[in-house]
Each structure stands twice: as C-alpha cells, then as structure tokens.
C-alpha cells in the first residue's frame, strides 16, 4: 500500500516581520487507491501543504512519507503535480510542451508522444495538439495542465484545485480520469472549494482551517461527528416543540419542525408530546451535508 502520509507538517514564514505559521502541525494520510479531498477556506494552508509535499517549499518541521518511508526526490519525480496557478509556455504548441515535460521526467520521447496524444484524445483535445497554449480557452488549458500531471503513470497525484473553472461535463470527465488512477492503487490528493463536489467524489476528506486539520475522515465519519437533526411533521401546528426540554428548535414552519435532540430521552419526550397533540406524519433523522459540517468545524 503506497500511502502518502503527512506527519506533523509545519511551515513558518518569516517574511514581513512577525513569523506566521501558515501550516501548523498538519497530519493526515492520503491512502492508496482513494480520492482524498482537501478542503479549506482561503489561507487555510492547503497550497502551502501541497507545495511542501511536492518539495518545492522547504519544510519547517515534520515530514512527508511515501510507501512507509520518508519521501525522496526519486519518489517525487514520479508524482503528478498540478500547481495552484495555471500556465504552461503560452507560446509553445500543446503537444510539444507536454512531450518536453514528460522528457524531463525521464520518459523516452516516442513513448511520451504516444501517451500525450492518447490523453489529449480522451480529453477531446486531439485536434488542438499543434496549437499554442495561449489560443486555448481556460477550460482547455486546464485539461492540458491535467495531462501534464497524469503523464507517465504517476505513483501519486497531488492536484491543487483541479476542478476550478471546469464545466459540469468536464468535471465528470476529470473525475473519471482521477478514478482510473485510484483504481491503479494510487493515492490522489486534491484541494477544492466546491464542497458539493468533494462530497460527491471523495472517499476521504481533510478539512483545514488556520493551518490546522479541523476534521479528517470519510464523509460518513465526519457526518457522525456532527449533531444529527430530526425532521418532525405533524397534522397540527408544531410550535410547541420550542417548549420541550432537551430539544432545540432550529426551524419551525406550520406543521413541520427541524430540531436538534441532545439525547434519547429528549427524543422520546418530544415524540410523546407530539402524539398527545395528534397524528405524527414523519419523524426522521436528517443527515447533515458536508457544507454544514464544514461550517461547524470551521466556525
């Protein structure tokens, strides 16, 4: 199992007077064969962490491990990486520069060429191979960039905001592509602002805030950590729930109410009180969305 593991990673920036801990003791594992989503607001430390994983930024303390051992430059050479800001050589043709980047990774020119053409074809860019990158739309430039990352069967993928700027169809194509790599047993770590997307795609989730890990686990594990809410729908008015001890009414609208119950006795009490007033049409737990969990942990 070639997991990508981050242990107690810390980065302190000294520039501009007071030292700033951009990343502060971050630990998590991007397991092999899983898509791990890296979520957090602006300045949470996602990009800094990814740059340290890739070795383009010096680590203040902590370590990055791959396959059970400290990561080496030979490992990293076989990682696929997509940096935060996009851009390739604007005035060079797509095919030519992808082959160049592949050759820098030690792939033979003929192999590189074949593989690049294959990827371009899959992403619908086969007919643009000879065009200059600057002539492509932003979405297409993004696709070229992802090809740069996934060439040569990488051992791990570290992608900073790979989905930003893609239309829904392209998002699906990109997701399929990433899944192909997880199926090979490769760990894929990607950052994103789009929580719905992360929720839909990821097997694991790391929420970062202020340079620290705020939550880490599968989406179900994270949901379980949050307070479960219940929806109650009655035949009559639901306003009474506000007076039931141990119950917090989040929202009441005529016959229906969204409530938080803090223990089982409170739930029993609530249900008994409801039945006294008439028929109970619905009493069910509401699974929190990731967006809710995110708001809770980052609050």
């Amino acid at each position: 199992m070639s997991d990508l593991e981050v242990r107690d990673l810390t980065r302190v920036f000294l520039s501009g007077g007071a030292p700033r801990r951009a990343v502060d003791g971050v630990s998590f594992t991007a397991s092999s064969g899983l898509l791990t989503g890296f979520v957090g607001g602006n300045g949470a430390g996602k990009t800094t962490t990814m740059r340290m994983i890739m070795g383009v930024l010096a680590i203040t303390s902590g370590e990055v491990r791959f396959d059970g051992a400290p990561v080496t430059r030979h490992d990293r050479r076989e990682f696929g990486y997509m940096p935060e800001e996009r851009g390739l050589y604007p005035k060079q043709p797509v095919l030519e520069q992808l082959v160049y980047l592949a050759r820098l990774r030690g792939i033979a020119p003929s192999v590189a060429r074949r593989e690049v053409l294959e990827h371009l074809d899959r992403l619908g860019l086969a007919d643009r191979a000879k065009e200059h990158v600057e002539k492509l739309s932003l979405g297409n430039q993004q696709r070229v960039q992802i090809v740069a990352a996934i060439m040569g069967q990488p051992k791990a993928l570290v992608l900073d905001e790979p989905f930003s700027g893609l239309d829904p169809a392209a998002v699906d194509a990109m997701a399929d592509l990433l899944r192909e790599h997880t199926r090979r047993g490769v760990p894929v770590l990607f950052s994103s602002h789009q929580l719905d997307l992360v929720e839909r795609l990821c097997e694991r989730l790391v929420i970062l805030g202020g340079g620290r890990v705020l939550a880490n686990g599968t989406p179900d594990e994270l949901r379980a950590q949050g307070v479960t809410r219940h929806r109650l729908v009655l035949s009559g008015d639901a306003g009474f729930v506000r007076g039931v001890p141990g119950v917090l009414a989040v929202d009441v609208d005529g016959p229906s109410a969204l409530v938080e119950v803090h223990d089982d006795t409170a739930a029993t009490r609530l249900l008994a009180a409801a039945l006294e007033r008439g028929a109970v049409r619905e009493f069910s737990p509401v699974r929190p969305t990731l967006a809710q969990i995110y708001r809770e942990v980052t609050a």
């Binding site: 383009v56 990486y81 940096p83 935060e84 800001e85 851009g87 390739l88 050589y89 604007p90």
Partner: peptide
C-alpha cells in the same frame, strides 16, 4: 506560471 514547480 508556476511551471517551474512542475519542472522542479
């Protein structure tokens, strides 16, 4: 363009 990060 941060291309240098990929190259590095």
């Amino acid at each position: 363009s941060r291309l240098v990060e990929i190259i590095a």
